[in-house]
C-alpha cells in the first residue's frame, strides 16, 4: 500500500484532461478548415476529434494483491485513442469559395462550437478537481512526516 500512488492516479487524470483540452482546442481552431486533406482532387473538411477515456490497466502484481485482499482501487485513467467523429459535414451555399463543388456548396467541418465550449468547461473543471485531490494527498503526506515530532 503506497500512498504516493495517489499522486500517480491524480497525475494520470491531469494528463488525460490536458490532452482532452488539446483536442478541443484543435477542434475549435479548425472549425472553418475546409481542406484538411485532399482525396482525388476534392477537398475533405476537418473531422471533429474526440478522446476515448478508459480506466488504466493495472499491472499483474497489483491485480494479484487486490484479489488476495478482496478488491482494490484502480490505477487512474488513460486516453486509449483519439477518434474522429463520423457525422456528416455541414453544407453551406457559397459559390465563390475555392472549395465549392459544382452546385456551389462548400462542406464545412462537423464541429459544433457550442458543444466544444461545453466540453472545454467540463475538461477544465475535471482538471481542477484532480488538482484538488493532488493537493489533499500532498497535505496528508506532509502531515505524516510530523509523526513523532510533537
Amino acid at each position: 500500500m503506497n500512498i504516493s500512488n495517489s499522486f500517480g492516479i491524480s497525475a494520470s487524470a491531469l494528463t488525460a484532461q490536458r490532452l482532452r483540452m488539446d483536442v478541443i482546442s484543435s477542434n475549435i481552431a479548425n472549425a472553418e478548415t475546409t481542406r484538411a486533406s485532399m482525396s482525388n482532387g476534392v477537398a475533405v473538411p476537418y473531422k471533429r476529434k474526440m478522446v476515448v477515456l478508459e480506466p488504466n490497466k493495472t499491472s499483474f502484481s497489483t491485480m494479484l494483491q487486490n484479489q488476495m485482499r478482496g478488491g482494490g482501487s484502480g490505477d487512474g485513467v488513460r486516453v486509449t485513442e483519439i477518434r474522429e467523429d463520423q457525422s456528416p459535414f455541414k453544407p453551406v451555399y457559397d459559390p465563390t469559395h475555392p472549395d465549392a463543388n459544382a452546385e456551389g456548396y462548400v462542406f464545412m467541418p462537423n464541429v459544433d462550437i457550442a458543444k466544444e465550449m461545453v466540453d472545454m468547461i467540463s475538461a477544465s473543471r475535471s482538471y481542477e478537481a484532480n488538482v484538488t485531490a493532488l493537493n489533499s494527498t500532498k497535505a496528508m503526506i506532509s502531515k505524516a512526516l510530523e509523526i513523532g515530532k510533537g
Binding site: 500512488n5 495517489s6 477515456l53 482501487s73 484532480n130 485531490a133
Partner: peptide, 27 residues
C-alpha cells in the same frame, strides 16, 4: 486506521480521475 485512510485517499483519487470515463463504477 492510517492504513485505511491512505487506501481511501487512493480510491477517491481514482474515482475523481475517472469522473469522465464511461462505464466506470466508483469504489
Amino acid at each position: 486506521a492510517l492504513d485505511a485512510s491512505n487506501m481511501r485517499q487512493r480510491t477517491i483519487a481514482d474515482n475523481v480521475a475517472n469522473a469522465d470515463t464511461p462505464y466506470f463504477k466508483r469504489s
